[in-house]
Simulated assay, not measured.
Amino acid sequence: MKTSRLFFTVLLLLSAAQPALADVSLQVKVLLEGAYNATSGLMRDDLRSKGLLPVTQPYAMSPFNYAGSETAAVGVLAVAGTDAVVDWVLLELRSADSAASVVA
Rank of each mutant, 00 (worst) to 15 (best):
M1T: 07
T3F: 06
L6S: 11
L6Y: 06
F7Q: 15
V10Y: 04
V10W: 05
L11F: 08
L11Q: 09
L12Y: 10
L12A: 11
S15E: 12
A16Q: 13
A16M: 09
A17L: 11
A20G: 09
L21Q: 02
V24T: 09
Q27R: 04
K29Q: 09
G34P: 03
Y36H: 10
Y36T: 01
T39F: 04
S40E: 02
G41Q: 05
L42Q: 15
M43Y: 10
M43P: 00
R44F: 06
R48Y: 00
G51C: 08
L52Q: 14
V55C: 09
M61H: 13
S62F: 15
P63R: 08
G68E: 02
G68S: 03
G68I: 02
S69I: 12
S69W: 07
S69D: 13
A72S: 11
A72F: 09
A73V: 10
V74L: 06
L77D: 05
A78H: 01
A80Q: 01
A84Y: 01
A84I: 01
V86W: 07
V86F: 13
D87E: 14
V89I: 15
L90N: 07
L91I: 15
E92T: 13
R94K: 13
A96G: 05
D97F: 07
A100E: 09
A104W: 00
